[in-house]
Computed example of a mutant assay.
Amino acid sequence: MAESGEALLETPLAGLHRRLGGRMVPFAGYAMPVHYPAGIMAEHLACRSGAALFDVSHMGQAELRGEGAAAALEALTPADVRGLKPGRQRYALFTTMTGGIFDDFMVANLGDRLFLVVNASRKEEDFALVEAALPAGVALRRLPDRALLAFQGPGAAAALAPSAPDLAALPFMGVAEARIAGVPVLASRSGYTGEDGFEISAPAEEAERLAEALLALPGAALAGLGARDSLRLEAGLCLYGNDIDETTSPVEAALTWTIGKRRRTEWDFPGAERVREELSSGPSRLRVGIKPEGRQPARGHTPIHAPGDGGAAIGEVTSGGFGPSLGGPMAMGYVARPHAGDGTALELMVRGRALPARVAPLPFTPHRYAR
């Protein structure tokens, strides 16, 4: 969020959002649309049934160039960056020296350079972290002059196919340069909704033309931050600052799959000692899915207790809300390991009242990525 009295930044699509009735709210220092006139529920369901367009231009984009760029990045992450083939992208974590998660990010190999996308709320910290670790001959170039759009849903590829067949043919986590409606773009087949779709980087000055072209495609709808949040929570995907932060480890967060096989033999990434110990002995707590009984959702910071136990909390909800596709409330949070098994009964303390809930497998809604 912006500091009190500090002017909010705007993305290149701010004018389009206002023109189309977007309700603008502060988010990570930017004025961003939380929803449009159709509302969060309709926007969420449009993404699950057709294709929805999200403005994610507040995210940080950068290029890493030079001999040894991949090795330099590996000094900050347990991901296997050197093994990433050209035209492929990977989800990764920056880790701290104490084994916490500094941020999560995407890295793509474009052949002659690496392309990074980091969280809006952490981009200054992330870029400073990377720049401080670079050897001579490797340089980070920030890309503030680029917009980023997410075109998500089961109809996204078919809608794009006539104008951008190369993108529609990409495999999951593939990345390529192409043109959409004459606009040069860099697109990956990935997203943050659990659906098939694309994340599309384009020159800022062409962003509005690109957005209008995408919205003109069959079945396309505009969607805001509200639907993006309910979609990612149904998909069991973490939000930095809520579900993961510098106090959580990749093992606690159930993100051990981001640690490359080779990295597990070298143990030369920040925080490797803690990660190795937790992989061996198990962490004290784990991120789990939670399904409250009834209709009342439990929001972030809700204490979690064992049923009938008047003692200390065994965990805390980190994200919670209503799942439009799920048809009920859902949450994620951390619980002590003995209480982390699927089906384990829990009590959520909402406004002084204990609400029954159970540990539920993630994701709540099955992923439908292109395979």
Results as ranks from 00 to 15, higher is better:
4 S>P: 07
10 E>G: 08
10 E>Y: 11
16 L>Q: 00
17 H>G: 04
19 R>W: 10
22 G>Q: 06
31 A>V: 08
40 I>K: 00
41 M>Y: 03
44 H>E: 08
44 H>F: 05
46 A>L: 05
52 A>M: 01
55 D>P: 00
57 S>C: 14
58 H>E: 09
62 A>L: 12
68 G>D: 07
87 G>A: 11
88 R>W: 03
92 A>N: 02
98 T>H: 15
101 I>C: 03
103 D>K: 01
106 M>I: 12
111 G>W: 09
115 F>R: 07
116 L>P: 05
126 D>G: 11
131 E>A: 15
136 A>L: 06
136 A>W: 04
155 G>C: 07
158 A>H: 10
160 L>P: 01
164 A>C: 13
167 L>M: 11
172 F>N: 14
176 A>Y: 03
177 E>N: 12
179 R>G: 10
180 I>Y: 01
182 G>Y: 08
188 S>H: 02
188 S>Y: 01
193 T>Y: 00
199 E>L: 02
203 P>K: 01
207 A>Y: 00
218 P>Y: 12
219 G>Q: 05
228 R>D: 12
231 L>E: 03
231 L>Y: 06
233 L>S: 00
233 L>V: 07
234 E>W: 13
235 A>R: 02
240 Y>R: 13
250 P>I: 09
250 P>L: 11
253 A>H: 04
254 A>M: 09
254 A>V: 06
256 T>I: 05
257 W>G: 08
257 W>C: 13
260 G>E: 00
263 R>M: 14
269 F>N: 01
277 E>K: 13
277 E>G: 12
280 S>G: 12
281 S>T: 14
283 P>T: 05
283 P>D: 08
295 R>A: 15
300 G>C: 05
300 G>H: 01
300 G>L: 02
304 I>C: 10
306 A>Q: 10
306 A>I: 10
306 A>T: 07
317 V>Q: 01
319 S>T: 04
326 L>Y: 14
329 P>S: 09
330 M>K: 02
332 M>A: 10
333 G>M: 04
340 A>Y: 05
341 G>P: 00
344 T>C: 10
345 A>Y: 05
350 V>T: 07
358 R>N: 05
364 F>P: 00
365 T>D: 02
365 T>R: 11
369 Y>H: 15
369 Y>P: 04
370 A>T: 13
